[in-house]
Computed example of a mutant assay.
Amino acid sequence: MSTTVMALQARELYRFFRAGEEETQALRGVSLCVRRGETVAVVGPSGAGKSTLLGCLAGLDEPSGGDVRVDGVRISHRPEAERARLRARGIGVLLQSNNLVAHLSVTDNVRLARSAVRGSPAVTVKDLLEQVGLAGRARALPRQLSGGELARAGLAVALANSPGVLLADEPTGELDGGSERLVLELLRSRADDGCGVLIVTHSAEAVQVADRVITMADGRVHDDGH
């Protein structure tokens, strides 16, 4: 890999899970990078290790071996409090579900995400919601949103602190065609603004908007798109 500082870089990631005497090797030496301004899609069959990989890249899980760096700063193999601080500042995570707190409005969900970081991003909450097409739903609770609106609200939360890296796990898995295209256009626009975007997906539409496709199988990268 290039020595140039990447938005995101993972080197030789291993992840083992043990249950009694049984050991599952979820990741087996995965290395990848995402440049600023680049959209990368990670594809592969169920059980290939894609979601485990995203958890390690986001600092939500610790790899058993190897390391992850965001803008050249190592986030793996640190205490959880340090990982959480680095994640809040530099990484936006968009999950298929659970991105929103059920009893808070869309606006308050974004404000909650911002409370984890000192200082205020240049983009106001109002402007951020306008960017994702939710200016008119700012006071709505998650249960009052459609599937497409939920995905866009989750994206607003992921972008609350203007991260340099955006990680999305099946962000369009439960959306209709029109909503899927809108969410993918929003993800693509973040890359155009200089963010490094990685999408774990089964969607052919998501693959089409990507600059590069990484194929995984059996916990390994079989094709990194180069």
Rank of each mutant, 00 (worst) to 15 (best):
G148C: 13
L186S: 08
V101I: 15
S120L: 12
P45V: 09
D211F: 06
V123P: 00
R28T: 04
T39V: 15
G173P: 03
A7N: 05
M6N: 04
G133W: 01
R220M: 10
H202E: 08
R118V: 07
A204D: 15
G164M: 07
T24G: 06
A48I: 07
L186F: 12
E180L: 07
Q25S: 11
E180P: 01
S120K: 13
G49R: 02
C33D: 10
G55Y: 08
E130M: 09
L128W: 02
D176R: 12
L198Y: 02
G194P: 04
A48W: 01
M6A: 14
G147I: 12
S115G: 14
V101M: 12
V68Y: 02
S46L: 12
G219K: 01
D223I: 07
V157Q: 01
R74N: 08
P142I: 10
L95S: 03
G177M: 07
M6D: 04
E80P: 03
Q25M: 11
S76H: 07
V132F: 03
L95Y: 09
P163L: 08
G29K: 02
R152I: 01
R188M: 07
E62F: 10
S51Y: 05
E23D: 10
N109D: 07
R111H: 08
T3S: 14
N99F: 04
S105D: 01
P163Y: 04
V132M: 06
Q96Y: 09
L184Q: 03
P79A: 13
D192N: 13
G225D: 07
L184R: 02
G37K: 06
S120M: 09
D71L: 12
S203R: 08
C33V: 05
A168V: 08
G20A: 11
E22Y: 14
R139N: 07
S120Q: 14
A58H: 03
L95E: 04
A191Y: 04
G225Q: 05
R212S: 05
P171Y: 10
G173A: 15
A84K: 03
E130D: 13
R69P: 01
L57T: 06
S189G: 13
R111A: 12
G66V: 06
A122W: 06
L166M: 11
R78K: 14
E205C: 08
L8P: 03
A204K: 14
D218F: 06
V5W: 03
G219R: 03
G225I: 04
E80F: 09
A153E: 02
D169T: 07
R143F: 11
N99M: 06
A48C: 10
H222V: 13
E149P: 07
R190E: 15
S162A: 15
N99A: 13
V110N: 01
E130G: 09
E38M: 08
E180W: 01
T215H: 08
V200S: 03
G65K: 04
V165M: 02
G219V: 02
V132H: 00
V42D: 00
V123Y: 01
D176G: 12
R143M: 09
C33E: 07
D211H: 14
V207H: 09
